[in-house]
Amino acid sequence: MENYRIFDSELDKLAHKVKLMCSQVNHQVNDVILALNTNDLVLAKKVIANDEYINNLDVKIDKLCQKIFALQQPVASDLRYIISALKINNDLERIGDHAVSIAKRIEPLQEYEQLIQELGLELIGEKTKNIFSDVVELVNGHNLEFAEQITIKAQEIKEECREIASTMLTEMMHQSEIVVVAANILIIINLFERISGYSTNIAESISFVVNGEIIKHKK
């Protein structure tokens, strides 16, 4: 019953681009975490520069989805895949932006390595890398076991980020001289939390592709 369609080559092209986007954003996330952990300003600048490639790819994926919608009138699993590709692309692009935002905040954190270590920022970074490697697996293979893992891990990251934020706020009240650096740390924490949030969105989108059920906002 299987039959090759011209449409399939368009879908293959789209799947290839989404996987490429995912892998590029994965590099950005890994690099920015490494740059943060090692105070590597050169690597931070590289992350900022690479964003343009991701933005271009984002537009290409959008255009390809538009073209498929307009010319192929996709239905059923094809329709679900293209809707999800658009959303996943959007989420990945936002994660890429967040990596850039973190990269831009590494310089003001110089000289505060000890504080960063004490707060456990490195651990959050590792967990974010870990959740994103699940995202890559999920996007490449549509194995929903990774989707479950992502949801669990995102919740953990969220809780830990909130804990760090609360510690930070207490410190700020006692040491006014750290307010500037603390504000940057709070922003970075928030960005990590957002990255894990977008990872959850991607997990939900892939679940929609596979099962056809919208699971977001369901607890």
Partner: peptide, 8 residues
Amino acid sequence: DYITGRFG
């Protein structure tokens, strides 16, 4: 398969 045109 039918509605997506994969019917051979």
